[in-house]
C-alpha cells in the first residue's frame, strides 16, 4: 500500500472498503475519500495532496460510544450530506479525535459533470467493522449496504 490509500473489497451482496494510513486522523480522512470514490464507482484511490478543492465547508461534531462507531458515524454523516445536497466530500481538517468525540471541518464540492455519482449506498454498516493499529500504521475495514 502507498502512504495512505483505500480500496474496495469483495462482498457478495454489498461492498467493503479497506483503508490504511499513517495516523488515525489521516485514516478518517482517507476513509472519507474512499466513500466519495465508491460513490463515483471507483475501486481504489490514493488521495493526493491536491485532493480537496472544496466549494463549501462544514463543521461537524460527532459523538459515539467508541472510535469504531465514530468512524461509521463520520461516513454516515458525509453520505447523508451527499444524498441530500448532492455534494461530495473533498477534504477535511480534523481538530479533535478522541475515544468518543470527533470534531472536524469537512469540505465538499459537487461532482464533476463527467464523473457523476454512480452508486446509491443505502448505509454504512457495523458489520465486519475493524479499526486497528498495525505496527505504526492504522487500518480500517468498513462494509456498505448497496
Amino acid at each position: 500500500m502507498a502512504d495512505a490509500e483505500w480500496r474496495t473489497i469483495e462482498h457478495t451482496a454489498d461492498l467493503g472498503l479497506e483503508v490504511e494510513a499513517p495516523s488515525l486522523e489521516q485514516l478518517f480522512v482517507v476513509g472519507a475519500h474512499g466513500l466519495a470514490g465508491v460513490l463515483l464507482g471507483d475501486e481504489a484511490g490514493v488521495p493526493s495532496a491536491s485532493a480537496g478543492r472544496a466549494t463549501e465547508w462544514r463543521e461537524l461534531v460527532l459523538e459515539g460510544p467508541d472510535r469504531q462507531a465514530l468512524l461509521v458515524d463520520w461516513l454516515r454523516e458525509l453520505l447523508y450530506i451527499q444524498i441530500t445536497e448532492g455534494v461530495l466530500f473533498t477534504a477535511a481538517e480534523i481538530s479533535e479525535l478522541g475515544e468518543d468525540r470527533l470534531i472536524a471541518r469537512a469540505g465538499f464540492a459537487p461532482p464533476a459533470a463527467d464523473t457523476p455519482v454512480e452508486r446509491e449506498l443505502k448505509g454504512v454498516t457495523y458489520h465486519d467493522l475493524e479499526l486497528s493499529q498495525r505496527g505504526d500504521r492504522w487500518y480500517a475495514r468498513i462494509v456498505f449496504d448497496l
Partner: peptide
C-alpha cells in the same frame, strides 16, 4: 441465503 451484514440475507 447469502452473506449480508449482521443477519444473513
Amino acid at each position: 441465503i447469502h452473506w449480508g451484514y449482521g443477519f444473513p440475507i
